[in-house]
Each structure stands twice: as C-alpha cells, then as structure tokens.
Design a protein around this nucleic acid. Structure first.
Lengths: 242, 242
DNA sequence: TTGTAATCGATTATCGATAACCGATTGTCG
DNA sequence: CGACAATCGGTTATCGATAATCGATTACAA
C-alpha cells in the first residue's frame, strides 16, 4: 500500500478557504459586520469564486456569518443577550454530560485536574487566551466523557456564540473565581456524586456570562413569534413531520 | 411602493433544490444510503450542477446527508442509538425550555391543550403522522415560550434525528400512554409549578425512544476518542479558542 | 494464482464567463 | 422641491466546460 505524496488527504480548496476565513474572523481581521465579497477573496487567494462561495455557505451554517440573497455576506455580531442564551443552553448540555459521564470521569480525574490547574494558573496571570484554552479542554473532556455524539456536536455548535466572548473582557477576579469552581466539580466527581457534579457544572456555566455585562435592555420577541404560524423559524428542515 | 410580480421573494434555485431533496428524503424516495449524484439531479431538474451542489452542502450541514471528498454524497442513516442520544439531548433542552417559559406558558394553556388533545385523539386512531404533527407542535410551543433563540435553533437542529423516527413504528399503546403525559405537564404548568413541568417534560422525552427498540449492542467509542488529541472532532470551528 | 500497474468511465471540484439583481446616483417631470 | 424612472457600477447566482480524482476493470508479471 503506497500513499500519495502529501501522505494524508489534502484538503479541498473550499475547506482551506473556510479555515482562512474562520481564522480571520477570530483574530479580528474581519470584525463583526464586515462584508465578505466573494470575488475579492477569490482574487486575493488566486482562486475562483466557487470555492469561496462554498466556504461562505459553510460559515453561514456555522452561524459565523449571515447571508442575504443578492445582498452579500457579513460577519455576524454576537450580542450579549445571545451569549447569555447560549450559556443557558450550554449549561444544561454540560449538566447532562456530567450526569452521563460521571462514572467514566472518575478514571480521568488526573487529566481533569491538569486542565483545571492550568486554567487557574492562567487566570492568576490574567492570561485570557491560555485560560480559555484550558477551560475549553476541561469542559470538552466532560462532554466527551458522556460518550454521546449528538451531545458533543450540539455542544460544539455553540462554540462560537459562547467562545467568542474572548472580547467580553473578564476581570481577573472573575476568572480566578470561576476557575476555582472547577475544583469543586472534580471533587464531586471524585466522591462519585455525579448528580452534584452535574448541578455544580450547570451553575458554573450559567453564571459565566450572567455576571458579565448586564446592560442591554433585552426586548422579548416571544409575542411576535407566537402570532405567526408555527413552522415560521429558519429551520432548514421544516417539512420534517407534516 | 410597488412589489415585484411574484410579490414576495422567489427562492434561489439552490433553496428550491434543497427543499425538493429534503422532501424526497423524508417521503422515502431517497432511502438511507442512497447516493445523490450532482449532475443527475441537475439534469433531472434542468439546471446546472452548481445549485445542486450548494443544496447538497446545505443538507450536509443539517446532517441529512454525508459527503466524502471526491466520493459523493449519500443519504445518512439514523441509527437507533443516535435516536436515543438525540432524545437525551432533546430532553434536557425541553426541560430548560419549560423552566424558562413556565410563566409565559400559563397564558397559553388553551393552545397547549388543543395540541395535546389532538395528539391523543390521533394516537387513539393509531394515526402516527397526525400524532407526530400535533406532538411536534406541542413541544414546539414550549420551546418557543422559552424565548431563547439559541435554544430554539439548537432544538430544531435535532429535528431530523428525532423526527425521522417516523419509521420507528411505535405501538398504539405507547403512543396513547405518552400522549396522556402531556396532560400532566399542562397541569403542572397550570398550577404554576414550572419545576415539576420541566421535570415531567424531561422524563417524557427521555422515554420516547428508550422504550422502543432496545436491541443494538451499542459499542462505546469513548476510549478511542480519549486517546486522540482533543480537537479531533468534526467541529467546523475548531480554531475557536486556541 | 495473485498481486500490482495501467486504463477507462463516471463523478466531484474548480474554473471563467454570463445573467440576474441590488443600491446609489442621476435625470425628469409634476 | 420632491417623487419617481432610468441608468450604472458592483456583487451574487447560475451556467457550461474542464481538471482532478475515484472505483472498477483489465492487462501483466512473478
């Protein structure tokens, strides 16, 4: 069995473009609301419009950008209220993960502690990026332990809404306090109390954004939605059961 | 202000193709594992490859199909274990929804009862399609009431995995029993006990698939995943926080 | 026989060009 | 002056054609 020159599969052009665009969105080269013009990007990367368009569509599915027909694509801005919403969802997902994965996690307490300690250390140095890195790993390990692929994907799909709070500057104190909660969660797991761990974890995640910026009036849109007929949302699969 | 001939926005070609493909997948014209060939579909619909390809990519994002580079796209088969996983996730999402929306739901008890009754009636007639229709509406109203867009989208993203259990023929007895639980949930809401409603709802959803087919050995994949480095999953946004 | 290399038809991925469309601007007329 | 129509540059949506890759088949050799 012989492998091709590049050993493992080269990525498609569209995939590479997608990664480039994601990087630029996250590192701030493309701030929120930036218009992304297919041909401009294509010219810059010396490729045709097609793979760029495909990449943009993928980003749209991931909700990093928003497209309006014939009006182009812009980088989506994550509002504080959306961050709060996402954290509420993430909280119950991780609660479920802890419940499902509690038994398995008892055999990985060491790894959990490593990440928790690293996150705390980073917090003390006010190194937000490193803190987030280890924080994500800590939470990711728990989600992974649940051994539920749907849960994992769902959790990851919130990554942007939640993770983009890089900019939501957190105070060092907050970070440290939150980081310390990891210990309690690990302790609960260590003594086999999955229920408690799950509850602690939910609280832990719920609070993350709630504590931060509490401004922004938050206008409800429930009334409007209720008025319109049900399947009105933007679900791709709207004809599911009819 | 004058409107264009077709009044409201015509859909793009790609959108229409997408809807056609979704319909065909759901009505069984394209059973699981069917290979979807871009040019074939394009020729059939008298359009070019491009919008078909775009539609397929959208379906991939919705996880209705699976694509391998240079190897084409196939309709995805939903396993029973995946259905179970999705129900676990859906359960905690709806639990959250009931908690968040409990207050608001008290003003919509009538609508809830309408759907619950209709679902029960359909169950008694063993009319699965109609049962599912009202069932989805009932649960959808609750999710809607939470007034959390992220939650709603996340819930909808499970729609396929969960809703596709149309084929997972449920016995009449099951349907009736489950349909009756709706009443208890409504009652809890009526007396203002959101906590109880949320708990009942979670149980209600958790059980849905668990009761059905209990076969299939369920091989864990946690060990393998744990071994590999973290960002190994298929998250689109893998460089989120790095 | 069996394993490997060359070939071929089918399909996906990408390209370059064109049609459809948007938004702003300009021009026209009341 | 103000509403509206025509026009224009720029962008998206779609097209038809080509390059790259796959899977199977055949050809060949140990």
């Amino acid at each position: 069995m012989k492998l091709k020159p590049a050993d493992i599969a080269r990525e498609s052009l569209a995939d590479r473009v997608r990664q480039v665009l994601i990087d630029r969105i996250f590192d701030g080269s493309y701030p929120p609301n930036t218009r992304l013009i297919e041909m401009q990007i294509a010219r810059e990367l010396n490729i045709s419009q097609t793979p760029v368009r495909e990449a943009l569509r993928a980003l749209e599915a991931a909700r990093l950008v928003e497209t309006q027909p014939y009006r182009g694509t812009r980088v989506r801005r994550i509002s504080d209220s959306e961050r709060r919403e996402a954290c509420q969802v993430r909280a119950v997902l991780e609660e479920l993960a802890a419940r499902l994965g509690a038994a398995r996690l008892r055999e990985h307490l060491r790894e959990l502690r490593v990440e928790a300690d690293a996150a705390l250390a980073a917090a003390r140095q006010n190194d937000v990026v490193r803190y987030l890195h280890h924080n994500v790993r800590f939470h990711g390990m728990i989600v992974e332990a649940a051994d539920n692929a749907v849960l994992r994907r769902t959790w990851e799909s919130l990554g942007f809404s939640v993770g983009a709070r890089v900019r939501a500057a957190r105070t060092t104190g907050d970070m440290i306090a939150v980081a310390k909660e990891h210990r309690q969660i690990i302790d609960a797991l260590a003594r086999g109390d999955g229920k408690a761990a799950a509850r602690l974890l939910r609280r832990h995640v719920e609070v993350i954004v709630g504590s931060a910026s509490e401004a922004e009036p938050r206008t409800s849109n429930h009334a409007r939605r209720w008025a319109g007929e049900p399947g009105e949302g933007d679900a791709i699969v709207r004809s599911a059961v009819r």
